[in-house]
Amino acid sequence: MILNNPSPGRPLTLTQRWSTLFTVLLAIGMFGLGLVLRAQITGAVAEYEDTRIGIRLTYPEKWLQDTNSGDYVFRVRDMTRAGFKTTIQISVQPVSSLTTERNVADQLARSRVLTLQDYRVLSISQSTLRDIPIEIVRYTYNDQSTSPFLQSFSTVVEGQDILTIQRGQAIIISFRAAADSFEDEYPVFDAFLSDLEF
């Protein structure tokens, strides 16, 4: 049985027009939902609060969280990321009444140059974080595989410290990511800062 299109040259019927419109709308809508789903999944957060230090924050879900180190009071790492694990950490240092954020930045640079390979400060600038004056230090260094029995190339890491002095202690909020993905990852840090209360 051969059924020819009775009118191949004719204009589209109303049903065909509506169908096309609905199809286009559905496709756009579904894709939009897909983007929403993506945002929900990538933006999922977990909450953390430490009343002893006085911080409350959210961090990306499924990032490995650690508070058991002497070097920092809080650290999260994106362990599911291949290569260098993007890291956000908060550390505190005692300061005197004369210490400024700039002093802390310089002291950090002096100590890190001994422990981090090719540590270089890229810039130091002043800004505010919700009306709190902060010092922003951007830096870079080479991260190496920790296990001596494995073979890995160094990763160029870009980092940013946000330094502020609160209640007699310097609070250092650090964000580190592989240099080639630093900008892509930075929104995560932005979101972290926007939720951070200290």
């Binding site: 977990a46 969280q65 296990s147 073979q151």
Partner: peptide
């Protein structure tokens, strides 16, 4: 719950994909 104190050990693969649990 992705807390480091829940881990017994952690290993990261190198450029060839090799790993060693330390």
């Amino acid at each position: 719950t992705w807390a480091e104190n829940q881990l017994y050990a952690l290993a990261i693969t190198d450029r060839e994909g090799y790993f060693e649990v330390d």
